[in-house]
Design a binder for these strands. Structure first.
Lengths: 235, 235
DNA sequence: ATGTGATTATTCGTATACAGTTTTTGGAAT
DNA sequence: ATTCCAAAAACTGTATACGAATAATCACAT
């Protein structure tokens, strides 16, 4: 059961620590790690059947990337600070319009077709009420068009905030009322891509980020209320 | 001579690897590392009088932060090709106007006074024909106002491109004709800060970045010509 | 003299070990 | 029963060591 050895999957040609890093990041991004769980290098090492060093390297790297937070007793999921999330919305409003414009120009026909397929998948996932699949589809869609941004530095900058984007998604996806808005926003963006309309793409992603912030703020307010309610019950 | 031990300076209360990281990043940002030098963990470890592990951690962290590039034989400065530098000018045009606007709002009177002093220093350095001091003053000026950007994520994003900014500066500062333009640009930005004029600050930094790009392109063209000339002489 | 192959050297990645530090736990006294 | 102190456990950071991979060098053959 332990000693899982990673060679089976995700053998992306990297070093062991790189593979552990990727596996852990996948778990984090899929929300498989509950808040408050402490990741300790020895435990991770034991799980993957390696020594402490690769596990430690992976954990520290994840911490530096912002996916984990180092404490005196293991690594934990970072408490996503409300202020920081708002800051990143600000950053995204600065960067993503330009990125979308470049994608509208740079996407190949094949990539466009692939994005269309993913969008269809997202739609059906929504109608079938499969939030998990919808979530994945949206992630793939976003990664897809960002990959077509010809400015590599801009691309990397955007990918750096993927974690936060993911964390926000995790919150806003909880409310099913947001699902149609998300799909519609992506669809409008996709339309602009298809028409090679850089201006429209730019405007629509900006609108999309604003809408995302609104949805996040609502989810945040709801979470606060919930929290205070449960605290009241507990006390 | 070797075995320098870092405890004297920069004992920022961090771990050894963290201190090595900071020292090396300082060297990189100040341009003290010449292009092509290979940083090897054993050598770094020897310099700081520690084992390979902290040195290796620091190097790998710098690499994944983008300050160094891992090769099969040590870490080297990422050679910024022409395209990438232009990409980063693009990014700076997206980010710095907003940042300057926030700085215009967030700078304290003391910080403003300090910036004014640095600007005076830059001016006198220019009149005295001291490029090194001018270079340093500009770096401090930039770091100064960026530190006042209240959006921490935006601040970190800007600091991430400091290396590239530094490299570009290194090229454009070589031509003394650029010095008055640089000082004038910073002075205009400073004026906007003093007047708490976020719009002016935003406009002026944008203009400044454009001018920087122009100067860089000129320097690049000159370097190309020079290179082909020397190649012709050599061959 | 030049190209090719083998040997050497360097460097990376991981394993194991040890010391320092902090948290937790157990016990005793009030 | 609670609080305080001490002992133990756990975790982190660093040191040392070893195997594997890759680049560099050198010898040899053409």
């Amino acid at each position: 059961m332990t000693e899982a050895k990673i060679s089976t999957a995700a053998a992306s040609g990297q070093s062991t620590s790189g593979q552990i890093h990727d596996v852990l990041m996948g778990r984090i991004q899929r929300g498989e790690l509950v808040q408050g769980v402490r990741l300790v290098d020895t435990a991770v090492a034991a799980e993957f059947g390696v020594s402490r060093m690769p596990a430690r390297d992976a954990l520290m790297r994840l911490a530096h990337e912002g996916y984990l937070e180092p404490t005196t007793r293991g690594f934990v999921l970072p408490r996503l600070d409300h202020e920081e999330i708002l800051e990143i919305f600000d950053l995204r409003r600065l960067l993503e319009p330009r990125a979308a414009a470049m994608a509208a120009h740079g996407l190949t026909e094949d990539e466009l077709a692939a994005l269309g397929g993913i969008l269809d998948d997202a739609r059906s996932a929504m109608t079938e009420g499969d939030p998990e699949r919808l979530f994945r589809a949206c992630e793939i869609f976003r990664n897809g068009w960002i990959a077509a941004v010809s400015n590599a530095s801009l691309r990397k900058a955007l990918q750096r905030y993927m974690t936060q984007v993911q964390a926000v998604r995790m919150m806003t996806f909880a409310d099913k009322a947001n699902h149609p808005l998300i799909v519609a926003g992506n669809a409008r963006l996709y339309e602009a891509f298809c028409q090679r309309d850089a201006v429209a793409a730019s405007d629509r992603i900006l609108r999309f980020v604003f809408d995302g912030e609104t949805a996040y703020l609502a989810a945040h307010a709801a979470a606060l209320k919930e929290q205070s309610g449960s605290t009241a019950r507990a006390g």
